[in-house]
Design a protein around this nucleic acid. Structure first.
Lengths: 240, 240
DNA sequence: TCGAGAGGTGTACGGCGTACACCTTGGCCG
DNA sequence: CGGCCAAGGTGTACGCCGTACACCTCTCGA
């Protein structure tokens, strides 16, 4: 060892490390080499640090992935305010799609995640807000969101009912007061999602949203559209 | 040890074991405890056998999962022949959905798989065949299949272009003769997929299918449908 | 000056997929 | 009938993984 050696902790470029840097490095690694290679060990090596060091900044690997998702989703391009609803939805959905194409790991990551994260909820709220701002009833907003879900994400995320990731212990049931408090907080942050929830509750007192109906609703929309195109001789472009 | 002990190899209920039994046990385990608990070690324990024994029947874990997928997909209920196209598509898509609901691990498994398996291709071919049988041009069949993709599977599977699972070595490029031979075999087994491919090739000489166009095509179909519903005051059922 | 907390470290455990060499057994052929 | 051979189950081992837990070492405010 030379007298100029670094202190006991190896010289790491500068500032110690923080959650944002860990998440950004995770996104960069996933972009470069795919989600499968994002392991705590590999990511820590990229950061010049020992694996366990990451646990000072993320609580576990699920938290890391959730943070990476939120980092990207929060960066979705937002259209200008005041667009006509159709254009607003269109631009938001296409912005989401752009990000999904730029980060191919994002869709599988969102699909595999068991919980919706704040940025994801915010995005869904913004899309619902465009429709509501166009005068849609929350009933129609609800069903349009379901139909769009597959477009926005490539799959249909349920905003609330989260499958409990089979094999994990059942989470504690929140009390009625806790539920009401959560709803209140929700309504503040995600008013359009709350609008959908409330509208649904008035129509379906048992609270469940009829998944099968959602599915057939969208399917029939598409089939009707196909029938119209067929009848009018639509084609995508002149054949060679 | 008593004189009545079993022979050196432990008594396994009967017939030795075979690929079908391994796949069926995999499906049963995934149904019971989720895809994540399907490990070679755990599955082998369920079968009363040592982990490496499975490798005599599946080539690796990917092959196991692919076999499980095909086992379920091949069991999709097929509607009677001679239905009007709309009803034929409807029943096939809903049959696929039923299976996806019965086997919640199936969708993630198909999404994670890098290759379409034969039963999956056969299902897609059958749906395309319903449309073609209804007089759809293959141009419209093509785009309708893309639009339906998200409905059929909950995501949009590309039938051919498979993302190469980042980090894996590039597969060998097939020769032109091999490609033509594969196309010939495809056309025999999956005539409607072949029809789409050929129609696309005539419209887009460079061979690529315009993913962005597909996406916006479906999105605009949905948005038009939403606009119509909105204008006519549609609601899903009378409010409370 | 010193104590505490933030943050990086080292070791260890149990689980994973699977390569490789081995052994047992049933059936076929000479 | 004897011997062989392949099919199929076994045992060991390796290098990954996530992460629990105890520890060490700076930095900074009191």
């Amino acid at each position: 060892m030379t007298p100029t050696d670094a202190p006991t902790t190896p010289a790491r470029g500068s500032a110690p490390l923080n959650r944002a840097a860990v998440l950004a490095a995770g996104v960069a690694l996933a972009d470069r080499e795919g989600l499968a290679t994002v392991s705590m060990r590999r990511l820590s090596a990229d950061l010049g640090v020992v694996p366990m060091a990451l646990y000072k900044h993320v609580s576990d690997k699920d938290d890391l992935i959730a943070g990476m998702i939120d980092l990207v989703v929060a960066g979705f391009a937002a259209p200008p305010l005041g667009l006509e609803w159709r254009e607003g939805v269109r631009q938001r959905v296409l912005a989401a799609r752009d990000a999904l194409r730029e980060h191919p790991w994002l869709r599988p990551a969102i699909e595999a995640a068991s919980q919706r994260t704040p940025a994801v909820l915010a995005h869904m709220n913004a899309v619902a807000g465009e429709l509501a701002g166009g005068g849609f009833s929350y009933d129609l907003v609800h069903h349009a969101m379901h139909a769009l879900g597959h477009r926005i994400w490539g799959f249909s995320p349920e905003a609330f009912s989260t499958r409990p990731a089979p094999g994990s212990p059942a989470p504690p049931v929140p009390s009625l007061e806790e539920q009401q408090a959560m709803m209140g907080a929700m309504a503040q942050q995600y008013p359009h999602i709350a609008g959908v929830v409330i509208d649904t509750a008035t129509r379906h007192p048992l609270g469940a949203c009829d998944d099968q109906f959602e599915f057939e609703f969208t399917l029939d929309l598409l089939l009707d559209a196909f029938a119209r195109l067929h009848e009018t001789g639509w084609e995508s472009r002149a054949a060679g």
